[in-house]
Simulated assay, not measured.
Amino acid sequence: MRFSTLFTALAVVATGASAATFSSSAISSATKLTSANHYGAPIAPWKAGHYPGWYYGKGVPPKGVTCFLDEVDILYLMLFCELLDLFPFGYHCPKPPQNPPPNNPPPPPEYSQTFYSLTCAIQDDSYLTYGLVDTVADCEAMCDSVYGCTFFNTYHDVNGKNGSLQLTCALFGKCLTASSADNCGGQTQPDGTVDYITNSDGYCKKTATGY
């Protein structure tokens, strides 16, 4: 309670908002999005009991998962992102891409693809966090927003009779290759089905994300 009160006071100073702007649930969500908690996903996606820590997309997030791209309540999202910025080592919302100046050539790509279309996903001790996204570009934006991210792996984890249209987006602290892709599913789901992996792609970043 003491920490929440202090955090609310800091939020008021930083954003100019009233103390009522941030609910206790918003503050609770923000405190979970730190590296110590793997940004809301403390259990890696290849382990039993895992659950996505966040969702970056325009669809409906799973219950209890924080969404960082909400066009319905954009004002709340902006304030929540300001709240997150108060954590020096926490998660920061993705920033819109910057257009290059006119008549200047576009910068070289920041990411290179190390593998594509595998049926297994990455397992590695450099795991940072994982969540759900709509596109590969969304996962890249998440990697650009998490301190130390050097590699991301997107894939469809088909876990249930209806599957999922969203991609799993797993972030890591070092560049990895197909040799580390040994999470091939096989976990029994609550409905009795067994999950499997499709469309697993890996991308390595030139320089780890820093603030």
Rank of each mutant, 00 (worst) to 15 (best):
M1I: 13
T5R: 07
T5Y: 11
T5F: 10
L6M: 12
T8Q: 08
A9T: 06
A11K: 01
T15F: 00
T15W: 03
T15V: 01
A17E: 14
S18F: 08
S18G: 15
S18L: 05
A20N: 13
A20H: 10
A20R: 08
T21A: 13
S23N: 06
S28N: 11
S29Q: 13
S29A: 14
A30S: 14
L33E: 02
A36Q: 09
N37L: 04
Y39I: 08
I43L: 09
I43F: 06
P45G: 08
W46K: 00
A48E: 12
A48L: 11
A48C: 08
W54G: 00
Y55I: 02
G59N: 06
V60C: 06
G64N: 07
V65H: 07
C67K: 03
F68G: 01
F68V: 03
F68A: 02
L69Q: 09
V72M: 09
D73V: 07
I74W: 07
Y76K: 09
Y76G: 13
L77A: 15
L77C: 14
C81S: 13
E82T: 10
L83Y: 05
D85G: 09
F87P: 01
P88Q: 08
G90W: 03
H92L: 02
C93R: 03
P97G: 09
Q98G: 05
Q98N: 10
N99T: 13
P100R: 00
P100T: 06
P105M: 01
P106H: 08
P107L: 09
P108A: 15
P108S: 15
Y111G: 06
Y111A: 09
S112V: 11
S112Q: 12
S112E: 15
T114P: 03
F115E: 03
F115R: 00
Y116A: 15
Q123R: 13
Q123N: 15
D124R: 02
T129W: 00
T129P: 01
T129V: 11
G131M: 05
L132S: 07
V136I: 12
A137Y: 10
C139E: 05
E140V: 05
A141Q: 12
M142F: 04
M142G: 01
C143S: 07
D144Q: 13
S145F: 06
V146P: 04
C149R: 00
C149A: 12
T150Q: 13
F151Y: 14
N153I: 02
T154K: 01
T154Q: 05
V158I: 11
V158L: 04
G160V: 00
L167K: 11
C169H: 04
A170L: 05
L171K: 01
K174Q: 15
C175W: 03
L176P: 05
T177P: 01
T177E: 10
T177C: 05
S180L: 00
G185R: 02
G185E: 04
P190A: 07
V194Y: 01
N199Q: 11
D201H: 15
D201A: 12
C204Y: 07
C204H: 08
K205N: 11
T207Y: 10
T209E: 09
T209C: 10
G210V: 12
Y211W: 10
